[in-house]
């Protein structure tokens, strides 16, 4: 084919079709998506960030934190666990049964004091159902729970995988694609200590030995100590944090905003598309597994 015009139209068709696929369709899917409203509590999801946290997101972008940190959590499947809610009255039979179910128990060990008690974790659905059945037979109230599983979730990076809705209120969306540092999706939950974060930003190696994260000293103001140290000066474990020249260190607004943003990162709410832990019957769990496999929850 040597016709320039035909070539031109061919290219045009390719450009338009790829545009529809990767620009228009996602926009159709997300463009009108609204935060989910919980009718009973009036809370909306995702939770809007505070003003400081929103400014902090900008600091996060400016300094390219996303080049070392992701904010997306994966899930490889589901696991099941068994929780005993009530031990019932037939404690003798129960104490005989428990050692056969879990190695935590010997025939002589007493029943745990607190309920609900998590008996087994990370098992498959059939085993869980079997255990629940045998527990019910001796009069205890037990149930199987289904929960998302995967290395990310076991590391405490979230109770479920992240989904599109989690990022509805953010612009730009900084998912990141390198995990030189840990994922931060659930940071606010894992480590809610604002002061630790300030100290860590000022000098990561002062709190995490051998960290390769760069220090962000420029987010702090250094001031000579004249008389008593300022009330705003950075302290760690009660001791004043000082820079190389012995000056006190006062977080600038940018540092405080950034930490507000970091603490606003939470992945602890179940959501329709990706439920967290919930009780499972054989039917409901199988439904979840099937729909998850076909990607229908998206």
């Amino acid at each position: 084919m040597n016709n320039g015009l035909l070539l031109f139209f061919g290219i045009l068709v390719a450009m338009v079709s790829s545009w529809f696929g990767f620009v228009h369709s996602p926009q159709l899917q997300f463009g009108k998506q609204l935060p989910e409203l919980d009718e009973s509590t009036g809370a909306s999801f995702p939770v809007p960030r505070s003003g400081a946290a929103n400014r902090g997101r900008d600091i996060y972008r400016q300094n390219g934190c996303a080049s070392c940190h992701t904010q997306q959590v994966r899930q490889s499947g589901f696991s099941f666990s068994v929780v005993i809610e009530d031990f019932g009255t037939n404690t003798v039979q129960l104490s005989q049964l428990l050692p056969s179910l879990s190695s935590q128990f010997t025939p002589s060990s007493p029943l745990p004091e607190e309920t609900p008690f998590r008996l087994k974790e990370g098992i498959d659905l059939r085993t869980a159902e079997g255990i629940v059945k045998s527990l019910t037979e001796v009069g205890a109230v037990a149930m199987a729970l289904i929960s998302p599983s995967g290395a990310d979730i076991e590391r405490g990076w979230g109770i479920r995988r992240t989904v599109g809705r989690d990022y509805l209120l953010d612009s730009p969306v900084m998912l990141g694609n390198q995990r030189i540092g840990p994922d931060l999706s659930n940071l606010g939950n894992r480590n809610p200590d604002a002061n630790w974060h300030l100290v860590h930003l000022f000098q990561p190696r002062s709190v995490v030995q051998d960290s390769v994260m760069p220090h962000y000293g420029y987010l702090f103001e250094k001031r000579e100590i004249t008389g008593a140290a300022s009330a705003d000066a950075l302290r760690f474990n009660g001791e004043l944090v000082v820079d190389d020249e012995g000056r006190q260190v006062i977080p600038r607004t940018a540092a405080l905003d950034l930490v507000a943003y970091l603490l606003s990162l939470r992945l602890d709410e179940p959501i329709f598309e990706a439920p967290g832990e919930k009780s499972a019957t054989v039917e409901s769990a199988e439904e979840t597994l099937v729909s998850e496999q076909s990607g229908a929850t998206e």
């Binding site: 545009w19 926009q27 612009s171 730009p172």
Partner: peptide, 19 residues
């Protein structure tokens, strides 16, 4: 247009940027 001036929402940004 779709990332700077009239940014699309949420993950649609990621798709546009990837494209």
């Amino acid at each position: 247009l779709l990332l700077h001036h009239f940014p699309v929402r949420g993950v649609a940004q990621v798709s546009v940027a990837g494209w």
